[in-house]
């Protein structure tokens, strides 16, 4: 490979064949962000408008609403996909702005842990009401 070529192509021949970049994940992360964003379009629309329509509801009314099977399933989907999308979105932000390998990896892992715990907390609450 000539020097002129090497300035354009940043991949080794093997890397090119495998289709993976330096992150070793190929387009997986990018694709997951697209899939989750598409799922979140109807879910977010439904969630925001539903909550806005329940501002005056009592505790009993809210519990009844969350407990309906369709609402519970949509809520669980919204929670799981939102936190997945948030965690991988925040990962990109942290990768861009946090300097130092150790700090960067730790920040990403802490955010992922928080997303897991918050997501599970929300999901458990929905299940406790619905079941």
């Amino acid at each position: 490979m000539s020097e002129q070529h090497s300035a354009i192509r940043l991949q080794s021949a093997l890397g090119r064949v495998r289709g993976y970049g330096s992150a070793r994940g190929g387009t997986h992360h990018w694709w997951v962000q697209r899939v989750t964003s598409m799922a979140l379009l109807p879910l977010t629309l439904w969630f925001i408008l539903s909550v806005a329509g329940h501002t005056g509801a009592t505790h009993a009314e809210i519990v009844l609403w969350i407990g309906r099977p369709l609402n519970a399933v949509l809520l669980l989907s919204f929670i799981a996909i939102s936190f997945q999308h948030a965690a991988s979105g925040m990962q990109v932000v942290l990768e861009d702005y946090v300097r130092g390998e150790m700090k960067r990896v730790m920040a990403i892992l802490v955010v992922k842990a928080l997303c897991w715990i918050l997501g599970l907390l929300a999901a458990l609450s929905v299940l406790r009401i619905a079941i």
């Binding site: 809210i62 948030a86 918050l118 907390l121 929300a122 609450s125 929905v126 406790r128 009401i129």
Partner: peptide, 13 residues
């Protein structure tokens, strides 16, 4: 999203 979690946890509590 923390608000959402709080709202759901409170509803369940």
């Amino acid at each position: 999203m923390v608000f959402l979690v709080w709202w759901l946890v409170a509803a369940a509590a």
